[in-house]
């Protein structure tokens, strides 16, 4: 108990290192294992062939039975290591096995069939990254189509979100007009209405507007976010009104004030909202599943989900597709890790 206590209470600024530092380090390392090993395992597995995936116990690296081409034989034959008997240590190709005896061929001298007991044979393993999982995926399935749908939806939705939310935030923070406070209260009230609540009616509206099976059906319902308006408004309140009046004196129209002055100055808040929006959109699942039911308009998560139904037995494709789906997010995160975590932390505190 006291160990936990010490770990809970120690904090930055202390000079001497004690065992609580080690305890917290151990906790963090354990956390890294739990948080990251499954992802790593996915990456490693995605490089295995279907055959290697079925091996139990599984290996971390993509080991698979080696095969060899033997002159005079069609296709490839499994390569075996002889573990006992007069030919111990030799590597032979297995032609077939009948009962407990295998008929082996020496790839170098394929003329003669060598009978060897099956128990004296062990498959030769080799490392083989099965990139064909990925190339097949691209070749046989419409991967780039789904990828493109996801990119398009994410990009368009984020741009529209930024535009209309910042416009509203600008008006709510920099103008006084009758009804302004009511509008703001109304927008905040929508915090209480998450998309799950309005699933059914939104489907009706999407159907009425002919948006079913269109990417716009995915985009429109979520672009006006109360979170976004609130975040941007709070930030814009910190922009001095003097700047806006100076621009007004400088003959700038209100629209120009918005996009030449207020928008550039709100860049940090816009970046946070952009991160949120990209996250929401790239990972969105339930609503796209409701509004998109033709596979040609599927987003990546939808395609992945429908694959896991269709390809239940073809894990190698499923894993490769999972990797391809999380890869863009991972790469972006690698580059923007600091600003993403800090941006979200700063938005969360408010």
């Amino acid at each position: 108990m006291s160990g936990l206590v010490g770990m809970l209470t120690a904090r930055r600024g202390r000079l001497a290192r004690d065992w609580t530092d080690w305890a917290s380090l151990a906790y963090l390392l354990l956390g890294v294992l739990v948080m990251f090993l499954p992802v790593l395992w996915l990456f490693a597995s995605s490089l295995k062939s279907d055959q290697a995936l079925n091996a139990f116990p599984p290996t971390f690296l993509p080991w698979e039975p080696a095969q060899v081409a033997v002159p005079g034989q069609p296709g490839h034959l499994p390569l075996m290591q002889v573990t006992a008997g007069p030919l111990a240590g030799r590597r032979l190709a297995e032609l077939r096995h009948i009962g407990l005896m295998a008929q082996m061929l020496d790839p170098a001298r394929p003329g003669r069939v060598l009978p060897i007991p099956v128990r004296d044979l062990r498959p030769v393993l080799r490392l083989h990254a099965s990139w064909s999982n990925f190339t097949d995926l691209v070749r046989r399935f419409n991967f780039f189509g789904y990828f493109w749908n996801s990119v398009l939806i994410t990009t368009l939705a984020t741009l529209i979100t930024l535009l209309i939310n910042s416009m509203a935030a600008f008006a709510l923070s920099k103008y006084r007009f009758a009804g302004r406070d009511a509008v703001f209260a109304l927008m905040l009230a929508t915090l209480m209405v998450p998309p799950t609540i309005v699933l059914v009616p939104n489907f009706l509206i999407a159907a009425r507007l002919d948006l079913v099976n269109s990417i716009w059906g995915v985009i429109w319902p979520g672009v006006a976010t109360p979170t976004g308006v609130f975040l941007l408004r709070q930030y814009m309140l910190t922009i001095p009104d003097d700047l806006i009046e100076a621009a007004r004196m400088d003959n700038a129209s209100e629209w120009r004030i918005y996009w030449r002055i207020v928008l550039p100055l709100s860049a940090p808040a816009l970046a946070v909202l952009a991160i949120f929006s990209v996250m929401w959109r790239w990972n969105d699942f339930l609503w796209p599943m409701v509004v998109l039911n033709r596979s040609s308009v599927f987003t990546l998560p939808l395609a992945l989900f429908s694959f896991q139904g269709d390809l239940q037995t073809q894990w190698h494709y499923l894993l490769a597709m999972t990797v391809l789906t999380l890869l863009p997010v991972t790469v972006i995160f690698l580059f923007l890790q600091r600003s993403i975590t800090q941006g979200i932390a700063s938005a969360g505190v408010k």
Binding site: P240, D242, A246, A247, M249, D250, A252, I261, L265
Partner: peptide
């Protein structure tokens, strides 16, 4: 409107566009 009066104002805070 302010912009059309042909006047120029120097603000106490200067109100320079920081970007």
């Amino acid at each position: 409107p302010a912009a059309s009066r042909g006047l120029a104002l120097v603000f106490q805070s200067y109100a320079l566009y920081p970007h």
